[in-house]
């Protein structure tokens, strides 16, 4: 009798475990959808943190001179506890310069979207960073002002990715 009850309880436990697993799994699944903004999330699984960028100019080895090309670097930080596959980095706005030897309002710098696209997709580790060094990703024409020597040229980007 005790053994029978035990077996019945074991069966119930198994069912409960399976159910719990199902619920958890479902919770994870529903939480993922929450992160995408479908509005159906209710589980406390946290929210997706936006990717950010850091100053990766220290990784630049090929600098720009008039008539030449140079590295374009995007250093991306993934603050999430899961890896993210970065699918796109889209250029927005115009190039701005800081830190040159003088006036540098005409940079003469152009960043290549296609060159960036050629480096993607890329998976960024959980809580990790990735420095995307786009070789010859930027070019400079002869209109660049003399004051642009030694300047840092910044080009805004929007990042699009998903948990890997």
């Amino acid at each position: 009798m005790n053994g029978s009850r035990f077996r019945r309880n074991g069966a119930k436990a198994t069912a409960a475990t399976v159910l719990t697993g199902v619920l958890l799994a479902a919770g994870v699944a529903f939480a993922a959808w929450t992160a995408t903004g479908t509005g159906q999330g209710y589980a406390k699984a946290g929210t997706a943190q936006a990717l950010t960028t850091l100053d990766g100019s220290g990784s630049i080895t090929n600098t720009l001179v008039p008539g030449g090309t140079g590295d374009f670097v995007i250093k991306i930080s993934n603050p999430n506890a899961y890896p993210v596959s970065l699918a796109g980095a889209t250029l927005t706005g115009s190039v701005a310069a800081t830190g040159g030897i003088g006036t540098c309002t005409t940079t003469g710098v152009t960043v290549s979207q296609s060159a960036i696209d050629g480096t993607l997709p890329h998976t960024i580790a959980a809580n990790g960073t990735w420095t995307d060094v786009v070789s010859a990703g930027a070019s400079m024409d002869n209109t660049s002002q003399n004051g642009c020597q030694g300047a840092t040229f910044t080009q805004s980007v929007t990042l699009s990715g998903a948990s890997a």
Partner: peptide, 11 residues
């Protein structure tokens, strides 16, 4: 998958 976008700048 969790959609994980962001923005920033390259240099």
């Amino acid at each position: 998958a969790w959609i994980t976008n962001g923005s920033g700048a390259g240099r």
